[in-house]
């Protein structure tokens, strides 16, 4: 059993790592990693904009952003992937690669979830910081940029890291639209061997577990460090719990 696993790894490590590259598209663990990192890197700035739109008073910003967040939260990711996969080519009249489909879907989905994290982070700062910034003459966006977001995003780093872990796990769904990522590679191996599914998928599980556990652990460490630092640095502004109120008095 253990011998099987080792020999599968020995025979297929390159396929698991980079897929059929350079003879085919880059795949395997490399594709999983690139997909996750790109998704979160693109989703993150988008999520900040979404969060700001969700706190806006303008219905033109508030309604579409709220609708997007509700849809993303209320629909399974697989559904969303299939929609993008089948609908986007119809709409734009051209085929798009599975990798791009998956990336776009993940960016929208993750941005919606992250925006709620960012929004909570901003709300948790309480009203005093925004009041102080506005009283000094900062514009709303200036106050966000220099005062609110640096604090909120710092405090939210552990949650953002957890969201990254979720994203890594969600890339597995790329398998259904033939994105050659790690799960896809594992399935290729399984189809070749036919008789050792348990061993093959055990390897797959192990890889995901190690990566995700490491990141989750890093998030926990980070969380503790931030909690320690915050205990030392926020005696002035009382830790205000989430309060569902707008943060600013716009003219």
């Amino acid at each position: 059993m253990l011998w099987d696993i080792l020999s599968i790894i020995q025979d297929n490590w390159l396929l698991l790592l980079i897929g059929q590259y350079p003879n085919g598209p880059l795949g395997g663990f490399a594709a999983t990693l690139i997909l996750s990192v790109l998704s979160i890197a693109l989703a993150f700035p988008l999520s900040v904009l979404l969060a700001l739109a969700r706190m806006s008073r303008s219905p033109f910003l508030l309604w579409p952003s709220t609708a997007l967040v509700y849809i993303a939260r209320g629909v399974p990711l697989l559904m969303l992937i299939l929609w993008v996969y089948f609908m986007v080519p119809v709409l734009i009249g051209a085929n798009i690669p599975g990798f791009v489909t998956m990336l776009v879907t993940l960016v929208i989905y993750e941005a919606a979830f992250l925006s709620e994290v960012v929004r909570a982070g901003i709300m948790a700062l309480g009203r005093g910081q925004m009041d102080a910034a506005r009283a000094l003459g900062h514009s709303y966006l200036g106050a966000m940029w220099y005062i609110i977001l640096p604090q909120a995003l710092y405090n939210m780093m552990p949650s953002i890291l957890s969201q990254f872990v979720s994203t890594i796990k969600e890339t597995t769904l790329g398998y259904v639209i033939n994105v050659p990522e790690l799960t896809f590679a594992a399935n290729q191996i399984n189809n070749q061997l036919l008789t050792k599914p348990f061993q093959v998928f055990f390897i797959l599980a192990l890889v995901y577990y190690l990566v995700c556990w490491t990141l989750s652990h890093a998030a926990t460490v980070l969380e503790r460090r931030i909690a320690r630092k915050r205990a030392g640095t926020t005696s002035g502004t009382l830790p205000v719990e989430l309060q569902p109120q707008t943060l600013t008095v716009e003219p």
């Binding site: 005093g128 910081q129 009041d131 102080a132 009283a135 604090q151 640095t233 002035g236």
Partner: peptide, 10 residues
Amino acid sequence: FVFQSFNLFP
């Protein structure tokens, strides 16, 4: 403007 709770930027 000076606030009761200081509101310094931590």
